[in-house]
Design a protein around this nucleic acid. Structure first.
Lengths: 217, 217
DNA sequence: TGTACATCAGTGAACGCGCGTTCACTGATGTAC
DNA sequence: TGTACATCAGTGAACGCGCGTTCACTGATGTAC
């Protein structure tokens, strides 16, 4: 039943956006609206469940795809990670908008979404770390950093998924991470409708381009 | 009066997000809800006016800032363009979300928003074109492109603001454009809350980093 | 200077609809002895 | 095999609220002669 509610709610996301109507979901299932309260304590609770599911689904899809590539094919792993993320987003646009679109007004995601939310970027970091460990990651040029930014980045280098790299590498990894979701958002939110027609080719090219920027072969 | 309605509606955007309530706006102004219909034929019409205003406001801010930099200081113009865009977004988060967040369900922007919507990217292209014309834009490495993508990019190179550059340069310009709004979205939509504390320093560094990628000095 | 008329901003009531959440409840199913 | 009880999914009515849009209207202001 919980699954049925969530599935129906997901369908509604596609039409109404994040202003999910609990009553409409109940109506679709053929149940009275108060019945939903047996399974979710509130509308926000249902929304949170959907968000968590979506993060998990995306994380699984990306990890599965990336894991199928030979470990030492860093460029291949990189490309696969990007492609899997984009594919998931194209297969689940409303979920993507829920996760990476504008925040729902009046709703704040509970702290237990943080973990699942960072699986993609962690995976991305892992590829760079592995390439770095194998000596196949070109070192970015040295750049001066203001002290507070250096502090932030230093803390990130200390994380296990970035461990052993450098502040400059982490910064470029974050550039790529930002670009990844920027590319997908532009595609799904209609920024490319004037100019680009072959979205897939465009994405593949842009994503490959940034691989060079982060130092991958 | 039109201005008063729009100003009040803007305040509501901040609280309720894009689900703007015409009645709430009227209530705030101290007028009966039907009175608004004298000035806007529908809720969507009001929303369109807000979007157009926002694009214009952003475009003005960016152009004014960028124009104040000496024409031959390409890196300075680049940095200023990015900074002005970010500053505007930080000063007007709800408007930014309206323009660059997830699309409002059930609403499609009319075609006359296209022009104002592309002022920032046009400006960005202009800087690259000027730098290229001055011989100060490093040529990106040659990359093979699938035919449909090459066709798309070739059409873009023909636009006046990109005229005289190359397919590879346009592609990198689009990377930067995507990154610009990706960086701002991540900041405003809360993707950086774990890890980055000094948003401004972070942005400045990332944006300068991508300048090198597009070939600027 | 005064009257007649047109313009126009805003009113108020209504239509028909939606929403989240609560609460006491029914009625079927399962369990224990 | 049969009775008594507990569990639990779902009901239905209600609360109090919101919304966009329509329509005939009032009443003030401006204009023409």
């Amino acid at each position: 039943m919980i699954e049925l509610i969530k599935a129906t709610a997901r369908e509604h996301l596609a039409v109404d956006g994040p202003n999910l109507s609990l009553r409409a979901v109940a109506r679709d299932i053929g149940v009275v609206s108060s019945a939903v309260y047996r399974y979710f304590t509130s509308r926000d609770d249902l929304l949170t469940a959907l968000i968590l599911d979506a993060y998990t689904d995306l994380g699984d899809a990306v990890e599965t795809a990336e894991q199928a590539v030979p470990r030492s094919d860093f460029a291949g792993r990189w490309q696969t990670l990007g492609r899997a993320t984009r594919n998931w987003a194209n297969a689940n646009p409303p979920e993507y908008a829920l996760l990476y679109g504008s925040p729902v007004p009046g709703y704040t995601a509970p702290p237990d979404t943080v973990g699942p939310a960072s699986r993609v970027v962690q995976r991305l970091a892992l590829i760079m770390r592995d390439a770095h460990a194998a000596g196949e990651l070109a070192a970015p040029p040295h750049q001066r950093l203001p002290r507070p930014l250096r502090a932030d980045l230093t803390a990130l280098v200390a994380l296990p998924e970035f461990g052993g790299t450098s502040v400059a590498i982490v910064a470029r990894g974050m550039t790529a991470w930002t670009l990844l979701f920027g590319l997908i958002s532009f595609e799904l939110f209609g920024r490319l409708t004037n100019g680009i027609h072959d979205y897939e080719a465009y994405f593949e090219h842009q994503w490959r381009g940034i691989a060079g920027f982060v130092g991958l072969p």
